[in-house]
Design a protein around this nucleic acid. Structure first.
Lengths: 345, 345
DNA sequence: TTAGCGTGGGAAAGCGCATTCCCATTGCAA
DNA sequence: TTGCAATGGGAATGCGCTTTCCCACGCTAA
């Protein structure tokens, strides 16, 4: 990656390095127009492209914003990524991407790499966990982030604060009202469903999942219903699929119509996919709701009841866009949780 | 973003800058173990994080790989992004992201920004276009890329060469056999469908769309069928939806069963979504096939016939991973194109 | 014993740029 | 006409690091 340098431009234009720099790279001092023109001409002729690395080094600010997600191909994360990307664009920065599959040690590495590149800020999406096996990883991640913050970095976390993070400066948590929204969902579902409820959740210790479970149970309790049974499985489509398989027989042999709450949309889709070949129809034989309102999944049939989350805004907020409204979700009841009478329509 | 520097570490360890560098940042010369240990200790105590910008400047290689997509939230692109990300990880690089909505001028800007950051290589995904209105934008993009290549950059293009690119060095096109695969799809569909065909395509001039249209028509011709009518619309879900709306009446009033080929999956989903409320059932009243085999859409019902594309591999290839097998797609006939007799099953 | 060699640490020269400080020039008021 | 401020270009320094070159040292072979 060799390219022509500023000093070459300066020489060709017959001016000093300083003047060339002032003309080409936005300084507060504006050289005279005729000189500026000469410099621009020279730059153009040489195809000069400023070296951002060198600029960053010289003024110690890189214009980079790091984004850490579990999996960029997951629609949940890619929606957030879009928001971050937009915010970055507005701030005239570029986004550095890291996918980690959710492993805390990978996240730590990513943070270190971002720190090495002197990213101005880091956005961490993806659920935090308090599981015992993640404890050490979490601690190391927290330490790395703290160091980054102490050195002047900003970090935006989606959902929950990093477990064990202690530096107060620079942290910025985008709170997602998972619990409240899940409670709201439960309330609305309870209003039109008489049978039992069942929750298909992610592994215990995953904040996002736990919050949604807790909220849903609270919503049920507030509606005077008995708590739902909770099944733990993977926090993705495969997890939902497995749970669906395990559930099929039970649904078919039961008298009562079950209302299933899968803690996110892709899990709900997995459940549905597993149930369908078993002859279990939604919403006839059971109803199901998800969470997130993933865009790509909106054309599914039966349309999935869920909680809409402004994922793009969340990304924007985490990236520090001040103009974005605070996070507020909305319960969306759709076909997948209609009662039999309604679904005749 | 201030942090402790190498010279601080060196001073604390009581060695020279050179030695500290050799110990900490992988040089071919390995200082003695006792000295190395002292340096590592000092680095640890200071929380030293090497400044990648400075390293890049010093050895003129940034370890960055730039990725340009239309929209990172589009599952097609996010799947490719995952592949690129993985390849980057293997090569010990980081990926810089840019979303451009497909505008050539934005792409040019992105290339310039990547060049400024001295990215080692650039991956550019998203369909090329030869439409007249894009001509100037394309030319500028090509010029920018040529310059980047001449300066030693590598660029991986997904699908078609950049229109007007002339530098031969450094370009690397990941060919996607759109035409052949579309022909294959047409052949297989023609084998079980007697009625007319219709193609819902993107705007004229979009390579990917045009290739698929051409291939499909060729496949039909080879099967002795008359060419399909082609409807032009947006290359996304909304485009498909619009086309579906426009088509509904016609399908309902026609005697013959229509087989629709939407040139990508999300368009096919859009068509289906528009048709459904109109009472047009797939595959009863019409059949439909897409292209890409987007993962998130696989659970749709009726299951969408499509052509599977190894998007992740495509991303990996474009990012220059030598171990990835060449691109080869597979026609996937599923429920959405079953003939009535079959669909009784 | 000494010339010759390999080993390994250090000094210093950049990498490409921003920026501070300095100086020459100009314009104006006194 | 002289003095001063204001204007604007240039030299030089440093951002944090890699790498080349140099040199001191200890070793072996003659």
């Amino acid at each position: 990656m060799a390219a022509s340098t500023l000093s070459e431009v300066a020489r060709l234009a017959g001016v000093s390095l300083a003047t060339a720099s002032r003309v080409l790279n936005g300084s507060s001092r504006k050289p005279a127009e005729d000189i500026a023109e000469r410099v621009r001409e020279a730059a153009d002729k040489l195809g000069y492209v400023p070296n951002a690395q060198a600029q960053a080094l010289a003024k110690s600010s890189s214009g980079l914003i790091g984004l850490i997600v579990h999996d960029i191909a997951d629609p949940y994360f890619s929606a957030i990524a879009r928001g971050v990307q937009e915010a970055a664009r507005q701030q005239n920065r570029m986004v550095l991407l890291a996918s980690t599959s959710g492993a805390a040690s990978d996240e730590r590495e990513a943070v270190a790499a971002f720190a090495a590149r002197r990213a101005d800020s880091i956005v961490i999406a993806g659920s935090r966990s308090v599981r015992a096996e993640d404890q050490q990883g979490n601690a190391e991640l927290a330490a790395e982030l703290d160091r980054y913050c102490r050195n002047g970095g900003h970090v935006g976390v989606v959902g929950h604060p990093i477990v064990g993070a202690s530096a107060s400066e620079g942290y910025h948590v985008v709170k997602v009202p998972n619990e409240e929204l899940a409670a709201g969902l439960a309330a609305e579902l309870a209003a039109s469903h008489d049978g039992p409820f069942l929750i298909i959740a992610g592994p215990e210790g995953l904040y996002t999942s736990d919050d949604r479970v807790r909220g849903f149970q609270r919503g049920l309790a507030d509606a005077g219903r008995t708590p739902a049974e909770v099944i733990r499985t993977g926090f993705n489509r495969a997890g939902g699929y497995d749970a669906g398989l395990a559930l099929a027989e039970r649904i078919k042999s039961s008298e009562e119509r079950l209302c299933i709450f899968a803690v996110n949309d892709v899990m709900a889709i997995g459940v549905t996919a597993a149930l369908r070949p078993e002859g279990v129809w939604i919403p006839r034989d059971a109803t199901i709701a998800g969470f997130d309102d993933i865009e790509t999944l909106r054309d599914f049939r039966p349309a999935l009841s869920t909680v809409h989350l402004p994922l793009e805004d969340i990304g924007r907020l985490a990236a520090g866009d001040p103009d974005t409204p605070p996070v507020s979700g909305v319960v969306k009841l759709r076909r997948s949780t209609e009662t039999p009478a309604e679904s005749q329509i």
